[in-house]
Amino acid sequence: MSAPVRLAESPSTGTARGGVSLAEALNRALADAMAADERVVVYGEDVGKLGGVFRVTDGLAERFGEQRCFDSPLAESGIVGTAIGMAMFGLRPVVELQFDGFSYPAFNQVVSHLAKLRYRSQGRLDLPVVIRIPYGGGIGSVEHHSESPEVYYAHTAGLKVVTPSTPSDAYALLRAAIDCPDPVVFLEPKRRYWEREDVTLPSPAVALGSAAVRREGRDVTVLAYGPTVPVALAAAEEAVGEGWSVEVVDVRSLSPLDEETIVASARRTGRVVVVQEAPRLAGYGAELAAVVGEGAFGWLEAPVQRVTGFDTPYPPARFEGWYLPDADRVLDAIAVAMAY
């Protein structure tokens, strides 16, 4: 349990460069989970010798051996399907689907089996599988590398869906996901992989199903998750100049959803803005807006405002600056809410 973590030993990372990056926190969480429980196995495309295209699995194969961390053939349905079989045997697989846009070939295994096997077997089969998916845009990549598929998974009963926005949450939520007896889709905001936080790992435990108030405010609540939390926080900071006190809630667990924290915040402020990178129609923000409407209708001063990606396919990289919700767009929505 106390085995050293490779990244912490590296002179190029750690507190020397000002904290821990989100990718490093995930790496440490995987290493600590593998050290704590020999049933934890990590595999996916390029996760072994290469350490993953984002280096989240860096050093794991070397430290734990190729029986515990290994490269799979290039086949996402195969990765998830075999993880289901491994979980039936009694292992706790943590698999990586290399990019959001490549999670779709595994969709049948995720929806038809991974999500349902506990229910189908009347509780006799645990499926403690974690599917890690780097997701979202903002890294200038080619098509199929910048998508936000969260609602497909959040809409599927039997899955838990979480997405961290900070290194300390990345560590804690991944440990919680690996310990969870239910399957967890773990969405990693890839443009935040390199953002650093001054935190000592292991960070305090976080329960799946809990939201976090990142910044307290009186006038407006901004609900965000994953890559848009820093966007919301930036908007909140700019709002100070307008004389608006903005509360930012990091939803972080999309399923189950912490309705209590969200409704309580909406009742406190009376105005709500939801932010997501995904397109608007039937997006996760629509669910958040409905939860706020059901739970805080009598407290609201304005209709819930949605700040989302446009309802287009994810655009070519040179367009993404116009596509992705930024702090200005969030601030505009705050202004609309405040004008009511």
């Binding site: 196995v41 349905s77 195969g78 998830v80 399907g81 079989g85 039936m88 045997f89 295994q109 089996h113």
Partner: peptide, 29 residues
Amino acid sequence: PRAARIAPSATPIATQALHAVGFAMAAAR
């Protein structure tokens, strides 16, 4: 399934083959 050592019968075609392979990979590992 645990008592019988039989996975729940799969209706989506061919999906169970991957479960069998994963199970076998875990056994071997």
